[in-house]
């Protein structure tokens, strides 16, 4: 029994390593074509990684704390099938307030999903991550206040539409 679960875990780990290996192979091919561009790409990637380390730490702590406090029962109450309108509201606000690149939130969301989070709310959370309150001044600077307000309204509406459609498709 134990062996089969270990085998399963091993199988689940492979796609990640295969993906990384494919990227490394791409780098090797490009290295033959243009060393300079590969060095530049590695420098850009290194900078991204360094900038992300603090965000990684915050996310791990967030996951740990949510593991401790959020039991499947509470996740399904606030974000599960019986969450109602409140659930949509919580998912939208959580998406707007969350920080860091989208992909570092995937493991957190996977855990929430395993604890009973609705698929539609997962979609709402991910879509609303596009709205970043601290970045609003920059959006206003480039495109104006009216544009920024209209865009935010349209994006919240789109997030709810996406959530609903994802649930229908499920």
């Amino acid at each position: 029994m134990k062996k089969s679960s270990r085998e399963k875990k091993g199988k689940r780990r492979w796609p990640g390593f295969i993906f990384l290996a494919l990227v490394i192979v791409t780098y090797c091919i490009l290295f033959i074509l243009s060393r300079e561009n590969v060095y530049r790409s590695l420098k850009v990637s290194g900078n991204i990684l360094v900038n992300l380390i603090p965000v990684f730490i915050v996310v791990i702590l967030f996951m740990g704390i949510s593991n401790f406090f959020l039991k499947p029962k509470s996740v399904s109450r606030y974000l599960g099938k019986e969450s109602g309108i409140k659930g949509w509201f919580i998912a939208a606000i959580a998406g707007i307030l969350s920080h860091g690149p989208i992909y570092i939130w995937y493991p957190v969301l996977k855990e929430f999903r395993q604890k009973g989070m609705r698929t539609g709310l997962l979609g709402v959370f991910l879509y609303n991550r596009a709205i970043k309150i601290p970045l609003l001044p920059l959006l206003i600077y480039y495109f104006g206040t009216v544009f920024a307000v209209l865009l935010l309204i349209w994006m919240i509406i789109a997030s709810l539409a996406e959530g609903k459609i994802l649930e229908i498709l499920e």
């Binding site: 993906f19 590695l42 850009v44 990637s45 290194g46 990684l49 740990g64 493991p107």
Partner: peptide, 23 residues
């Protein structure tokens, strides 16, 4: 927190691949 670290670590090859692609 340790469990979270382990879960996060298992997704790390994917993160690293994405960061390299972004470069």
């Amino acid at each position: 927190i340790y469990e979270a670290f382990k879960n996060f670590g298992s997704a790390f090859p994917i993160f690293l691949g994405i960061i390299l692609l972004l470069g």
